[in-house]
Design a protein around this nucleic acid. Structure first.
Lengths: 271, 271
DNA sequence: TCGAGCGTTTCGTACTGCAAGACGATTCTC
DNA sequence: GAGAATCGTCTTGCAGTACGAAACGCTCGA
């Protein structure tokens, strides 16, 4: 879809997943007509796909209201997937101790297909729950996690983001290319980044990159909280805890500092 | 779906889910050829569907080995589903306290489309982990859960099971119709059932039915353990704990004893 | 060097999923 | 209690597409 040449796989399957995800996105139950208008297609088509999904168990139909919601198989597939996703298994211990040590909400995201998706959120100890919905996308230019991912990824991703423009999310969002690039440079020198008030006013985060065994950015780990608890210049303890967690997760993914250093030198020579 | 006339929904979507589930069933990563032979189709077709699934994020492709495994979206859909499946949310508290009180493994299953699927397993306190894999199917004639579900379901389900035959799983499996029907009658009078050595030698369980707001069997809750810890005639404490849990879950589902009693009377009159 | 295996790509055709509309059954409105 | 306006479900002709077969690079190991 980014390039015109790709055919996008099997069309009716795409539609089936559109339906499934629309059912997932809806709060509570949804009806056929509702889904049809939502997806811009006809009732008949949606109905047919829902039949398939119900038969498979991915969607359940309430026998009295005749409306639809997510079914058991969707849950079970997710359970299996939880054990197969490296970033998830590799990070579980580290995020637990990070949360316990610091007390703030911990968010792990995965860089996938030019987007940064929230994989897991563990709420902090505060009574006020501050977090990011699992599955939501993080702005690459407007969040600590996004900027840090951008900083350690290849140039193509940055150019992609710049081409899309830098939408202003709050008064403090970085919207100038020069300023963004300075921030990325800062990330590369200090190994982490903050983003006070940049995505949501009153909220700050400390984010560090997670590398896979190839030395590429697999995702990010971050603590998220109010600017009161996470200052624009965060406590050294907070910074070190996030950095420690990111290294621990990267290590679990098979990351080897020697390999990435070698890669960096190669790239520096090429640039 | 019970009749042969049904077309079973969208064919290519069926295949897509076959592929997805085959990927989920495989330990670790799988290749295209392997999946093709497994599903009895061609490499090209499997590849095409994998493309779709990868693009959607339900499946990931390892860039170095070129083989496939479950992806992030599968996990995220499951996370959403976990919050939407009534039986899961309604049972979470009850199974936690059942496990803590009794110490044995707790298994919650859902009756769906004439099969009993394991929704959730919480391991007991023993060092030896005895449990049933999430997503696996329980034999309706050969497990405590299955028999109990059968006992409180409609006659059609029993007839369906009898038509399929009663495969012998161990020396103690019930394979005679008369004996099975006596067991079901016992379930209806005492409200629970055991199955020592019937499915696996050395293993026993205490299972009770879970009812939904319509008074139909939604699933079962059970403790599972070695015959040493769960005797053929279990401790009164164990029995009462399972019954209490089943009532609590049924209550959370909106079950009303008055409604089911009325229904029973109607059925008794009809039989 | 060869061959066997892999994942990927191409291509023509049989088939099948889509759009449009009809159909009962509910649920409102008056 | 009758009519209108939904709802989910079902049918049908046609256009488009997903499938199977075979070929293509490529990476191994013999």
């Amino acid at each position: 879809m980014t390039t015109a040449r790709s055919d996008g796989g099997v069309k009716s399957v795409q539609l089936a997943f559109d339906v499934l995800e629309a059912v997932a996105a809806a709060p509570g139950e949804v009806g056929v007509s509702e889904l049809a208008t939502l997806l811009g297609t006809t009732k008949g088509t949606v109905f047919r796909h829902l039949q398939t999904l119900v038969e498979r168990g991915y969607v359940d139909q309430n026998t009295v209201s005749a409306r639809y919601k997510l079914g058991t198989r969707s849950y079970l597939i997710g359970q299996v997937a939880a054990g197969r996703i490296e970033l998830l298994t590799a990070s579980s211990d580290a995020i637990a101790s990070l949360r316990d040590d610091i007390g703030e909400t911990v968010v792990v995201s995965e860089l996938r297909n030019r987007t940064l998706v929230v994989l897991r959120t563990v709420f902090g100890k505060s009574n006020l729950e501050i977090g990011v919905r699992q599955g939501s996308e993080l702005a690459l230019h407007g969040t600590a996690q996004g900027k840090v991912a951008l900083a350690f990824s290849n140039r193509a991703l940055l150019q992609h983001v710049l081409r899309q423009g830098l939408p202003r999310l709050t008064d403090h969002t970085i919207v100038e290319q020069a300023k963004l690039e300075a921030e990325l440079e800062l990330a590369r020198t200090q190994g982490f980044l903050t983003a006070p008030n940049e995505e949501t006013f009153g909220i700050n985060a400390v984010a560090a990159p997670i590398f896979d065994r190839m030395g590429n950015v697999a995702g990010t780990v971050a603590i998220v909280g109010s600017v009161q608890n996470i200052k624009p210049a965060p406590d050294q303890i907070q910074i070190e805890a996030v950095l420690k967690a990111s290294l621990r997760i990267s290590w679990n993914l098979g990351y080897d500092r020697g390999a990435i250093d070698a890669r960096k030198r190669t790239e520096a020579a090429a640039s």
